[in-house]
Design a protein around this nucleic acid. Structure first.
Lengths: 249, 249
DNA sequence: GCAAAAGTGTTAACTTTACACCCATGG
DNA sequence: CCATGGGTGTAAAGTTAACACTTTTGC
């Protein structure tokens, strides 16, 4: 096989139907799968759906769908999220594509895995049918998932662990106003370090970035000294990045 | 549209041909594109091919191909590399999948981008036909590429820049035995920092990791004091990683 | 002997880590 | 008044950054 024939194949596609020599390349599909992370103040969670049909009937799985013919990959991931939760405009990141020949029992389907970070309080079960089919699971209690979804989840969790330290994405999992303790708990439950972060050092570090603005109001209704509330200043972050700043925890 | 119908679509694939309601999802294909990096002692290079046919005839492009029906994605990327260079078993990393609806003028083709790192001296033009169609380009002199390949290249370059600091992959671009100056030049040309790395600090840091073993022989045939040659100790690195070591430059 | 790159150490600035007690509130 | 988590500073250890001259070789 010469180089020009090898690399010519992509050149030579004359049509997109399934006839002719090129046809077999089109008996395949692609999907997106969405690892939707949430944080409830204690644990990192992932939103799973329970499958109603074969294959893997009754198994828990990542929400996902085939990509429509005229739909960009990101759009498909956003659609999956919106159909499940009603949420739009949230943090979405492509992580990795899984394409083992036999990963889907019914044919050749490669899937592009995405991470989504949502503020769990914004997520409301929008229909009764949902309540039975979608549920938050603690990240270490997901059990055996459908397809290769355990592998996908692991990849996405690794990515989250790395990224949460090098980009200000943790805030996507918290309500707009949060306490420093909540923020620290978030880091602790995502990172699962052998030792929890040191309270004083954590506060020093995060405040020294000058990315948090103090809210005028305080935490309310707690049986202890109420904490200050902070907001993440997106705009400032953008400025600082332009000046060469690199987020790092 | 209910959730079960939405998320049932992937469930419901009954066959992989193109008939029936599901058919339109299979009028699509996927390819891999390979960003093959090399280093010649001075500059970071990327191996491009010149297209012989439309679309984008005569344009430079990343080597790539459609994925065979029974081929894993990684295998396809390895095949593309081997057909172009004859090399096997080199460093390969999936980076990102590009799937804009119109990225391919002839149909819906999503492509999975890979980085490959090769020791440029191992790459030999294996056929005369190659010489005309494949060529190393300096990383900042690639010009206008076919398809969305400029975007793909940028993504892969960003990934390389990050990864070269956090994993010992730079060695994949150097011959098995190299001098510390060569190693530093590699980092300088990949990272393109505003200031070049400091020679003494760089040596201190890299040697303090205890991952390089000194070779008995020295550099030869240079018109100056010959440098010590080093090898990267893969095995030791594996051990250290198990003990929690994190590579960082 | 000269051009060219190899090789080498010290100090100051900065960052990270470890660590313990008083404060404000609700019940 | 007590239980609960909020809030705070310092010192030691470690890391990074800046910096210039001597050595060895080929020609």
């Amino acid at each position: 096989m010469t180089i020009s024939s090898t690399f010519g194949r992509e050149n030579n596609q004359r049509n997109m139907d399934t006839t002719g020599e090129v046809g077999s390349f089109f008996k395949s599909a692609f999907s997106v799968d969405n690892v939707i992370f949430g944080f409830d103040g204690g644990d990192l969670k992932v939103l799973l759906i329970q499958r109603g049909q074969a294959p893997f009937k009754d198994k828990w799985a990542l929400p996902g769908d085939l990509v429509y013919p005229n739909e960009d990959l990101n759009t498909a991931a956003e659609r999956v999220l919106e159909q499940l939760t009603g949420l739009r405009g949230v943090y979405l990141e492509q992580v990795k594509t899984f394409g083992a020949v036999n990963r889907h029992p019914l044919g050749r389907v490669i899937t592009v895995a995405y991470i989504t970070l949502i503020k769990i309080s914004n997520y409301t079960v929008t229909a009764a049918s949902f309540a039975q089919s979608a549920k938050w699971h603690n990240i270490d209690e997901v059990g055996d998932l459908a397809f290769d979804h355990n592998e996908i989840l692991e990849s996405c969790l690794r990515r989250l662990k790395r990224k949460v330290r090098t980009a200000p994405i943790g805030f996507e999992l918290l309500p707009p106003k949060f306490t420093l303790t909540e923020l620290q708990q978030l880091y602790d439950s995502v990172l699962r370090l052998p030792k929890r972060l040191d309270k004083r050092n954590f506060r020093k570090k995060i405040l020294s970035m000058n990315l948090l603005v103090e809210c005028p109001e305080m935490q309310e209704g707690v049986a202890h000294r109420p904490a200050k509330l902070y907001q993440f200043d997106r705009e400032k972050y953008g400025q600082f990045v332009n000046e060469g700043f690199i987020f790092d925890i």
